[in-house]
Write a protein that binds this DNA or RNA. Structure first.
Lengths: 139, 139
DNA sequence: GTTTATGCAAAAGTTTTGCAAACTA
DNA sequence: TAGTTTGCAAAACTTTTGCATAAAC
């Protein structure tokens, strides 16, 4: 089984991207934290070990990884952009109280055309009240 | 058939909101332009007839109308927040080339619970290439 | 007359940009 | 060495906020 990190960097190498240190650090971070991140949360986390990393580099690399299909951007109510590093089609549940984002596994919609328009990607967002908040726990 | 404007203002009145002039103007604008607006596009459009309107008022009123269920916010790739004044459940198709947003009529999903979390709203976004862009037209 | 909303301008917050210096291949 | 990328700081944008003034009830 091919290592995921190898897969990513071989793809980037193939495309001619420089395999710089900041990029490697960010990729490793994302691969070992399959979650929903913001540029800020990534910057904060990586800054602990590598204080010299800049926000601009975070944004540049996230854009690159999104373009190459390794990340997906999530656009969510009242929030900044989230980056999803979990591969494969899935939807998201967002709790309106605590803001938590949960993955929802779901069969990919096989729609490819709507009224003549070609559909390439489908995003489904469920908004509501999560179990924990309903029970009155703080989180 | 009850006039839509009447419906909105009677609801606002009932809730104790002041039926101010700027609010009436914004509501009338939204009712006669059932589309996908941004705060900026609304401000720009209304400013033509009422140059004294302020952005703060636009935002306040949009927030109010969203809270009262007359508008829905759309969170879309690389863009500011859009406000949808078309009532009833529907999804959206967004062209990645021209940015156009098209309504997609669809049966409302009747999901009310996922893994213990209570779902209150579902948003579906289809991203792709619209017919017009595929044909190579500029729009 | 009291309460609530408006308009202005400044602030806040996220993301982008420009450019010299540093790094990669 | 040639070509990218980085880091910094400033800029660009959208949205929010605070407060005196004005409008609505």
């Amino acid at each position: 089984m091919i290592d995921e990190f190898e897969k990513v960097i071989s793809r980037l190498r193939k495309k001619g991207y420089v395999l710089s240190m900041p990029r490697m650090v960010i990729i490793k971070y994302l691969l070992s934290n399959k979650n929903h991140h913001t540029a800020e949360s990534i910057h904060k986390a990586i800054s602990k070990d590598y204080p010299s990393i800049s926000v601009a580099t975070i944004y540049n690399t996230l854009k690159l990884l999104t373009k190459e299909g390794f990340l997906k951007q999530l656009f969510i109510e009242g929030e900044k952009v989230f980056y999803d590093s979990t591969p494969g089609f899935h939807s998201h549940f967002i709790c309106r109280i605590c803001g938590k984002i949960k993955d929802v596994s779901e069969k990919p919609k096989k729609i490819c055309k709507i009224n003549g328009d070609r559909v390439e990607e489908v995003y489904v967002y469920y908004y509501g009240l999560c179990e924990e908040c309903k029970k009155g726990r703080k989180n």
